[in-house]
């Protein structure tokens, strides 16, 4: 295995991870909710109006994060590198939308919150999407 020392950013990764953990802890402790992005977004797509407003407020915070951080600390934001073409982006979006709803969670709900709760279900889900992600990138970068 070769480590990519040029792109490896342990300190900002750890700092960002701590912020993610703080947000997840704050959400369950203040609002009594598990911070899972796919579940929060997916819950808006079923017509249950009484339960929509907290989801909308959370998602608004998420959407304004780049603009506000760009004002406070622009140097902390990396420019995204997106290799996938538009067709791959559409296919990936469909797979992520379907998969996270069938699997009841994504990297935040299962990966961060689920593992923090020591949930066996989330451990299985996290191992499954990690394995599938590793395999997919291997196929795309080294076989095709």
């Amino acid at each position: 295995m070769i480590i990519d020392w040029i792109n490896f950013t342990p300190w900002s990764a750890l700092a960002g991870g701590i912020l993610l953990g703080l947000a997840s802890a704050a959400f369950i402790l203040l609002n009594g909710r598990v911070l899972g992005i796919s579940g929060i977004l997916g819950g808006l797509l079923v017509p249950r109006r009484s339960d929509a407003s907290w989801r909308v407020f959370f998602l608004m915070g998420l959407l304004v994060a780049p603009v506000t951080l760009a004002l406070l600390a622009p140097t902390l934001i990396a420019t995204p590198r997106i290799e996938a073409n538009n067709a791959a982006i559409v296919a990936a979006g469909l797979l992520v939308g379907l998969g996270t709803r069938y699997g009841s969670g994504c990297t935040s709900g299962h990966g961060v919150c689920g593992l923090s709760r020591l949930s066996p279900r989330s451990m299985v889900a996290t191992l499954a999407f990690m394995a599938s992600g590793f395999l997919t990138v291997y196929v795309i970068r080294h076989l095709i």
């Binding site: 990936a92 379907l98 069938y102 699997g103 009841s104």
Partner: peptide
């Protein structure tokens, strides 16, 4: 199966929902 499907999309684009 849902998580495996999600992982395939994640690897394909490098994006997850958040």
């Amino acid at each position: 199966l849902g998580s495996l499907t999600f992982g395939a999309g994640w690897g394909l684009a490098g994006f997850c929902p958040g």
